[in-house]
Computed example of a mutant assay.
Amino acid sequence: MRILHILNHIQEIGNGIVNVAIDLACLQAKTGHDVAVASAGGEYEALLSEYGAKHFKIDQTRTPINLIKAASMYRVAVQEFKPDIVHAHMMTGVVLARLLKMSSGYTLVSTVHNEFQRSAVLMGWAERVIAVSQAVAQSMVQRGIAENKLRIVSNGTLGSPRTRQLKEYQPLSLKRPAIATVAGMYRRKGIAELIEAFAQVAANFPQAQLYIVGNGPDRELFEAQAKLTTVSDRIHFEGFQPEPQRYLLASDIFVLASHRDPSPLVIPEAREAGCAIVATAVDGIPEALDGGQAGFLVPPSDSKALAGALEQLLSDPNVLQQWKEQAQHNLDRLNVVRVHQETMMVYEELIANSK
């Protein structure tokens, strides 16, 4: 099968959409398919080359002149590569692939990652729409995407070609007990509530430290908030880290306080690393935590509830250890191989139906 993935870029910056697509492209190439990726480029070009996947450089920046150039370059890529499947992971890609399909003969698949964006409804232009969680699928139905178009392939990242085996990472020497989050610095990631919750419990646990791993446009806002607390010296902004596993392995508690999060890849990584997990009960997070069996679930935008969960874990070593162990149960379904296999089934069904 000839598969062309289309994305805005393939930079190594912790973007979950990019990471999912790169995992798929590498495993598809590894299993004998002809695979190419069309994007503006980035650090993952080298990894794709290692797996024998081709890269077409197409800059899809949304300016009129640039989009005209992108359309021309996309036509050239399709004529040269002759894909059976074009798999679009971002909105610009699905629009390009749909409008320029004409008589090319490929079948168009899209994956809805951030369904909370208004433009996500355009992903429904594809002939088959993959949702990364049950919650995303339900949301897309409510927004008018036909159920018979939708297939659910839940995210999983363990065993990714982008990373080494977990045992090969050296844990950092963090001050303990260590609470960590790995997230983009956006308000929707709930960093403000996490800082507030930590400030509420920190006095009762004078050794506890908070490590915030990630970067983004709202970082200065969160740093300013942290400075206004009485425990700012125990809140550490670590920036983007290409190997967040080193933080996860050294942490006692992992927190993801998102307001919206369709199916975060960091949850499987935190589970594999053996962190006790506290996360918000929104979108695909409960699915990633086995409905609450693998981690505490708290309401979003509720720093008091978040503080209460942290206090329970910090107050009793036995409870903390119990949740660390529960996080590591049932990890097989979070493996990237399962994501690859289920995605290939979507392709094969489409191609069989088109004959």
Rank of each mutant, 00 (worst) to 15 (best):
C26R: 00
R62E: 11
P177H: 05
A77T: 03
I130L: 02
A270L: 05
S49D: 14
G144S: 10
S154P: 13
I3Y: 01
R271I: 02
I65G: 11
A203P: 12
A183S: 14
A131N: 11
A53L: 03
C275A: 09
A180G: 01
F56P: 07
A327I: 04
M90C: 10
H329M: 12
T343F: 03
I130V: 14
V109I: 15
Y51I: 02
F205R: 06
E311R: 15
Y211A: 10
L122R: 05
E168G: 02
H5L: 03
V255S: 10
L166I: 12
R162T: 01
K175F: 03
N155I: 11
A183E: 07
R338A: 11
I58L: 06
S110G: 04
G295N: 08
W323H: 12
L331F: 11
V337Y: 09
H87A: 00
V18N: 06
T181Q: 04
E168H: 06
L27P: 05
V336A: 09
H33N: 10
A40D: 11
E223D: 08
F198N: 04
T343P: 04
G156H: 07
S133T: 04
A305Q: 12
A29I: 05
L297M: 06
N318I: 13
A279E: 01
H329L: 15
R98I: 01
A88R: 06
A273Y: 05
A36E: 01
Q200L: 15
L100D: 04
T61V: 11
M185I: 11
A307Q: 08
Q328A: 02
L249C: 03
Q134H: 10
P83Y: 07
S301D: 15
S110V: 01
S315W: 02
N66V: 08
S139L: 11
Y106C: 02
Q322M: 13
T157W: 02
Q117A: 13
V35D: 00
Q200N: 09
D34P: 00
C26G: 03
E223W: 03
I351A: 06
S104Q: 14
V282A: 02
L96T: 05
S251W: 08
A276V: 08
L265N: 07
Q207N: 14
Y186C: 08
V339G: 01
A25C: 00
K355R: 15
